[in-house]
Design a protein around this nucleic acid. Structure first.
Lengths: 110, 110
DNA sequence: CACGTTAGTAAGTCATGGCTTACGGTAAGC
DNA sequence: GCTTACCGTAAGCCATGACTTACTAACGTG
């Protein structure tokens, strides 16, 4: 139960729509900064700043290739957020089931 | 592959730390608005507004109980975000594996 | 039936953070 | 070595959105 820390950073990072867009493009294909910026309605420095946040959250990793920096998905950070959500999803499922059962019992009881 | 829509709303909603805090408290135990506000450093209307966003994203559901509104987790919205993340996590894993293999082959080749 | 409790909405304030331009710095190519 | 391409950081601007107070509404209780 310590995905909480990393999961929070990840969720905070994925809260911005532009960052989600960048994230999804990287998911399709690892890309360099300028390459990403060319397909987006924001400037290249803006993309750089977003990548910095995504990297700090552990969602993407960077690899130098000449003067280019190739960004790709980082399974670790993504996995942390996934686990956090999965845990809450399971909680929600059982809670919902219990709730539905109780409703049913109440109706049957009267 | 249409969790994208709901997942985006969910991620946008969970981007705010106060909303995540509210979300986690509801996960522990379904609660009314005032009850939540009492344990948080923000006013009751602020909590109301956050719950509105969470509900619109399909992450929580509301049930009237007298003048009180009980909020509980909604598995549907949470599941959508979970699936979105799970999908990208799987992508990241295989991509990372491929990348590692290629690095290894390159080293062996020389 | 009035009062107290609970909660959503409106309006307005203010800070967070996303964006831009400008700059500096590194690696490849001629 | 000089130029070109690629990228991160700094500084500053500005809009989004989170928060507050005030108001209105609905339900239960004495």
């Amino acid at each position: 139960m310590n995905y909480a820390n990393k999961a929070w950073d990840g969720l905070a990072a994925l809260g911005d729509p532009t960052r989600r867009e960048i994230f999804e493009r990287i998911a399709i294909r690892p890309s360099a900064v300028g390459e990403l910026a060319r397909g987006l309605p924001v400037s290249r420095p803006a993309v750089s700043q977003h990548l910095k946040v995504l990297k700090a959250a552990g969602l993407v990793s960077e690899q130098a290739q000449g003067t280019r920096r190739i960004y790709r998905l980082d399974p670790r950070g993504i996995g942390a957020v996934r686990d956090w959500l999965d845990s809450h999803w399971a909680t929600a499922m059982t809670a919902f089931q219990d709730y539905a059962d109780r409703q049913h019992d109440q109706e049957a009881g009267t």
